[in-house]
């Protein structure tokens, strides 16, 4: 367990920073480059890095496989739900003006935040689940096969 000591220490330091940067990109996406896609990938990278350095078992204790799948679906629901909520308020699908009829640009702001949050959750979930799907398969091929 003492292998790769530098790698382990540096990743421990980095993972927190990566997550924080992911959240910054997520929620500051409307004023600077960023948004759900990028933030989702950055957050997923934090988990994938943890998985690579500490092993799949460790990361799946924090972020189990079933939760990853559910999160990928929940993100889509957040996106679609934002649109449907607008429909219930009497506006068109995804018309964020519905959330603040008196001041439509505020509505746009809140709407895009909610939608990007959905995108971020889905992208993070999907990227991590892609990693799990490939990393989690029982190894069937040896190096000689390549």
């Amino acid at each position: 367990m003492r292998h790769h000591l530098i790698l382990r220490t540096v990743s421990k330091l980095l993972i927190g920073a990566i997550l924080l940067f992911g959240l910054y990109v997520q929620f500051h996406g409307d004023f600077s480059p960023g948004g759900g896609f990028q933030a989702g990938v950055i957050v997923a990278v934090a988990f994938i890095l943890h998985g690579i350095v500490f092993g799949l078992g460790m990361v799946q204790r924090v972020f189990p496989r079933w939760l990853v799948h559910k999160l990928a679906a929940v993100g889509v629901l957040v996106y679609a739900g934002t649109g449907v909520l607008g429909m219930f308020l009497g506006y068109d699908f995804l018309d964020y003006g519905a959330f603040s009829p008196d001041h439509p640009s505020h509505g746009q702001h809140w709407g895009i935040l909610a939608v990007e949050l959905g995108v971020g959750i889905t992208v993070a979930g999907v990227m991590v689940s892609v990693y799990y799907a490939f990393a989690g398969r029982p190894p069937q091929m040896s190096d000689e096969d390549w």
């Binding site: 799948h69 559910k70 679906a73």
Partner: peptide, 8 residues
Amino acid sequence: VAAPVAVV
């Protein structure tokens, strides 16, 4: 919408 609900 039904698809992600089914997954959840």
